[in-house]
Design a protein around this nucleic acid. Structure first.
Lengths: 334, 334
DNA sequence: TTGTAAGCGTTATCAC
DNA sequence: GTGATAACGCTTACAA
């Protein structure tokens, strides 16, 4: 069943059928209803390959999501989806392996889909530097700062990772903690991980707290498992600490279990603070203390900026969205 | 940049370029290397719209995933991905809203992609009954039983939900529990939820344990939040129980927090058992007791069956994969 | 081994 | 308003 069959069946030409199916204006009401009914009856759907191949521009927004198991992105996406619906932009979501190049992927998809705009959920600066020049549609990078990259069509919206992790550490210092362990990311390869690390150091040095990185910092890929392993190793290596900061909630969760397996209770023996503010954290016992990223705000601002770039040619902007410290049950004063 | 440009640039015809780019045999080594180098240099990628539009059959396997926030599916997918790589089948993953019709979606995608086979992660019997007849490629439904549907090209692989939840309840009875509360799914609309409910009833009645459904059963959509709300409501409504069975780990996690907020400790005051065996469960304190679905086995069997249906025309089969009871820290004997 | 050319199912550009 | 018809970028006979 193709558009041709529908044309034959209704007695109209393919052009009219196409116009109707795409909701274009200059079609008679008769034609519209006849064709829509026929399409309905036969359950006809446009072939998007042919459509996209021929189409000069679609009116969809393309979302490129880096990594499929990221709960923060899932949450972001839910809001973004709602906002796109409300603004009547079809949303096309493309999930990709975290290890692949999201900009290359976007370039390919732009050629194929010709979207109005691009939303990146997660991204790596290096990939943008080396490949974003061949993207010419309005874009927004979410959860990473792109102000240094200076692309006229690339905005960014994120939490100030450095300030946020500094604030997290400050709050634990305020609770009386002086001996810290930190489970972070690979600061050599991930900008986000580096910034969160630097924020920690900012806090420690401003309070004149010494920190032996070799002994008290572990950099791993964000996961329950790695959080567990890192925390266990910290304890077993003899590192003494009353507070542990994990640069992601998933690692904090793994870490808490590791501490428990080492005979340490949270928060009685060790306070643990995470980063992200995943919904899951509020159902844990103890509820996870964490730096809550303002997911809804990030989604809202991203979509607003993207849409104004698309419709009004607004210039690229770079925004830090406020975060919130959630002192809950996994931290305590000593 | 198109295949034509590449042809012009290398002096070959478009057919040869196409053959090289698709790894077809009858091309000279010279042509192959020249064209590959040129493609590399210019970063050329085939336009998949044009490719799929023209192609009679792709050699890809299409995976239709129902719902994007399902951790069990994420885990399954990871294994499936690995197996497809190993067998050299490109995998195309399509995520869709849980509320939409996965079979309709598959029909559309089959028309567009012409995949060799289909893997459904999750699915609803009704949708298959009303729409699967128009799918003619080998297919496997994972996590649901399709033996009743009798489609010659539809296999299925799943846990015996009824037996598994019966076993879970039996195990709690063996621990001495007699008063149960159950947080399940909508048994009126979800077959899986109904089976898990029936398994519970099988167990209870075989042990002559009475159960007031009105008072002690809550049917909700699987989520942390709903698990929390349902458990809280059970306690507040005065339902007395020493054990709670949740038909999904996510609900068990929500329920544990709700119990805690009602002043009940797990497992000291109430034992809680989940269903699924999510990786997360082993990092919780207390570790979640649960029915572990054999995710790896399900993935392996699904892919094996799908591939033998594709390559050897093997007939459809319907397989129950063994489950495991994990008695961990959220349950205890009384 | 290679090239030519006919579509795949649409949309866009014309005329009418 | 509507209908021919030429692309879109590719694969695949069929010829050479």
């Amino acid at each position: 069943m193709t558009i041709k069959d529908l044309a034959k069946k209704t007695g109209y030409g393919v052009a009219t059928v196409s116009r109707v199916l795409n909701g274009q204006p200059s079609v008679s009401e008769t034609a519209r209803s006849v064709i829509l009914r026929a399409a309905e009856e036969s359950g006809f759907q446009l072939n998007s390959n042919a459509k996209q191949l021929k189409q000069q521009r679609s009116n969809a927004i393309l979302v490129v999501v880096k990594g499929r198991a990221n709960e923060l992105f899932s949450e972001l996406l839910e809001y973004v989806q709602g906002m796109a619906d409300q603004a009547h932009y079809p949303l096309h979501v493309d999930y990709m392996e975290e290890s692949l190049n999201e900009v290359q992927r976007a370039v390919q998809l732009c050629r194929e889909m010709k979207p109005l705009g691009l939303l990146f959920l997660g991204g790596d600066s290096q990939n943008f530097i080396s490949g974003f020049h061949s993207i010419d549609v309005p874009s927004v990078l979410v959860t990473n700062d792109a102000s240094d990259l200076n692309f006229p069509n690339l905005s960014s919206v994120c939490t100030d990772n450095r300030q946020a992790s500094r604030a997290a550490m400050d709050s634990m210092v305020a609770l009386g903690h002086r001996n810290f362990a930190i489970v972070g990311g690979y600061k050599e390869t991930s900008t986000t991980s580096l910034l969160r690390y630097q924020g920690c150091m900012d806090s420690l040095s401003s309070h004149n707290i010494s920190f032996d990185e070799e002994q008290s910092y572990r950099g791993v890929l964000f996961s329950y498992e790695n959080g567990y392993a890192a925390a266990k190793e910290l304890v077993e290596s003899g590192c003494k600490f009353s507070a542990l900061f994990a640069a992601a909630d998933v690692m904090a969760i793994g870490a808490i279990r590791a501490l428990r397996d080492c005979g340490l209770r949270v928060p009685e023996d060790v306070s643990v603070m995470g980063f992200d503010g995943l919904p899951l954290g509020s159902y844990l016992v103890p509820q996870l203390s964490t730096v809550r990223q303002s997911v809804f705000e990030m989604a809202r601002i991203s979509m607003d900026m993207l849409i104004s770039q698309i419709t009004e040619g607004a210039p690229a902007r770079h925004i830090f969205v406020p975060f919130t410290l959630w002192q809950r049950e996994s931290t305590r004063a000593i």
